[in-house]
Write a protein that binds this DNA or RNA. Structure first.
Length: 252
DNA sequence: GCGACAG
DNA sequence: ATCTTGTCGC
């Protein structure tokens, strides 16, 4: 088993991490229409943790956007690279996510993150950060409103309400199932807010959360279980480590 | 200053 | 995120 290392130059302190966000923020593309929903491929990414073993497992699951059938999937297991700090989630999740994306046998198309993009204290959440590093179209779909506020959307699937940071709209609270708690959609990179909402609805024909997120969540949990089991079985003695790649999708 | 806070 | 049994419903 390979355990992915932390990329060279990855921030080690909160101070450095915030500086990275301030520097990369300007590269986000906010207003492209993005790919039409229901066409091409859509990839979900998610991460699971075992703090005891200091393990993080990421999964990337590629779906056919029209049928939502699984086309390809990949996982990566690594060491935890950053503590959980609200506003700095990307530094904890991205190394493993990038390694999983790097292992996919096909281009991912649109990427759906479990978390926020523009809706972020410095307007540079996980989904935007992933987009800037890969230049892929990315959206964020979160399960909680974080620090943001919103009016209650109507009760029907498809109803939405602006997600507000003070007087600024940073996303939408979107009802994906009748009478069920909304999800929280925000722009990541190269897909505008209307497109992000449309993609989220296309990915939720049956459940509250996007199929992409559900598939990636199940897969990263399984990858974490298997990694933990293998480490226990070998006393952790045969684990190899390597440097994570540093130029993922630099050319696409 | 204190609490809250995506995952 | 994760800790955790049964239970109600399609």
């Amino acid at each position: 088993m390979t355990i992915v290392g932390v990329p060279a130059g990855w921030p080690a302190t909160e101070e450095e991490a915030r500086a990275v966000q301030d520097e990369l923020r300007g590269r986000v593309v906010l207003h492209e229409p993005g790919p039409p929903p229901g066409t091409g491929r859509v990839t979900g990414v998610d991460v699971a943790y075992d703090d005891e073993l200091d393990l993080v497992a990421a999964a990337a699951v590629v779906l056919d956007a029209a049928t939502l059938d699984v086309v390809a999937e990949a996982t990566a297991v690594g060491r935890v690279s950053f503590p959980y700090v609200p506003g700095l989630l990307a530094f904890r999740e991205l190394p493993a996510v990038l390694a999983a994306l790097d292992r996919l046998p096909v281009p991912p198309g649109l990427v759906v993150c479990d978390g926020y993009g523009l809706a972020h204290p410095r307007r540079f959440g996980l989904a935007s950060h992933l987009g800037v590093l890969t230049d892929l179209p990315v959206i964020g779909v979160a399960k909680n409103p974080f620090t943001f506020t919103h009016d209650d959307p109507g009760p029907a699937r498809g109803a939405d309400a602006p997600l507000m940071a003070g007087a600024e709209e940073v996303g939408r609270a979107l009802r994906t199932r009748d009478g069920v708690k909304p999800v929280f959609v925000s722009v990541g990179h190269r897909v505008g807010l209307p497109g992000a909402v449309a993609h989220t609805l296309a990915l939720t024909p049956r459940f509250r959360l996007p199929e992409t997120t559900r598939r990636a969540d199940a897969l990263c949990r399984r990858a974490l279980r298997e990694a933990a089991r293998r480490l226990a079985g070998t006393g952790g003695q045969d684990a190899t480590t390597r440097q994570a790649p540093t130029s993922w999708y630099a050319e696409s």
